[in-house]
């Protein structure tokens, strides 16, 4: 039975969790999978390759959450989209093909200034550097090449080595990398907790869509503060 009154949310309704989800809430099996909180989306400069204006809202809340997780002994994994120099690894990403392709069809006043997508996640640049705090004991998975945190990375390997099968998803973007990684994780039978308040997407509407899809098919949509309360209660009772 959960130690607290933590609830899961679906389509804006909250439901209390039953004991059958004790394994989802088990603090000893959890790891934080924080996605793409890096300069390629969050650098404040005007040359940011793929700015996530909404993503900036969760930098400090994620920092605060991660600090509490470290105190609780929960590993924090920063997953970072990183490309080798030369803009050859990212050019075939579907989102980039679709976006660049269709930008070419639209007038300048609709699409705005050019975006240097080729700089996104470039290794050894500010556009692959974390925009959140990096703890001494944190892990970094920095071979993400596409929108899944699992494709071409050692995320699954790392989780197996750590003995963790509960993935808490934070970061950006809700309707892109978070949702894709949630599907990938669910396909590998990870128990998924989606800390919705620590994620942001392309728009509030699409954030809600991602939340509802995850809540319907893939995992539990939870509030990060309530999750921390639950874990702290488990630790106190251990």
């Amino acid at each position: 039975m959960p130690k607290t009154a933590i609830m899961a949310e679906l389509k804006k309704k909250k439901v209390a969790l039953s004991p059958e989800f004790d394994d989802y809430l088990d603090v000893s099996k959890a790891a934080i999978m924080e996605i793409d909180m890096h300069g390629g989306h969050l650098d404040p400069g005007p040359d940011c390759p793929a700015p996530s204006l909404r993503g900036k809202e969760v930098i400090e809340p994620i920092n605060a959450f991660n600090r509490r997780c470290r105190e609780l002994g929960i590993p924090v994994v920063h997953v970072v989209n990183t490309y080798r120099q030369g803009d050859f690894e990212g050019v075939e990403s579907a989102w980039r093909r679709l976006t660049e392709g269709h930008r070419s069809m639209l007038p300048r006043e609709v699409i705005g200034p050019d975006s240097p997508y080729g700089n996104l996640g470039l290794e050894n640049t500010k556009w692959s550097r974390l925009a959140v705090e990096l703890g001494d004991q944190d892990y970094v998975v920095d071979t993400k090449k596409r929108i899944s945190a699992f494709e071409a990375t050692d995320m699954d390997f790392l989780m197996k080595q750590l003995g963790k099968d509960v993935l808490v998803i934070t970061g950006i973007m809700s309707d892109c990398c978070d949702l894709c990684s949630a599907f990938a994780a669910a396909g590998k039978d990870y128990k998924i907790l989606y800390a919705w308040d620590l994620t942001r997407g392309s728009s509030p509407q699409n954030e809600q869509a991602a939340k509802d899809i995850i809540g319907s098919y893939l995992g539990l949509v939870v509030d990060s503060a309530k999750l921390l309360e639950e874990w702290q209660a488990q630790r106190r009772n251990a």
């Binding site: 579907a94 989102w95 929108i147 509407q205 699409n206 991602a210 899809i213």
Partner: peptide, 9 residues
């Protein structure tokens, strides 16, 4: 929502 996500990404 699924259609929107598919078309974007």
């Amino acid at each position: 929502g699924a259609k929107r996500v598919f078309s974007l990404f």
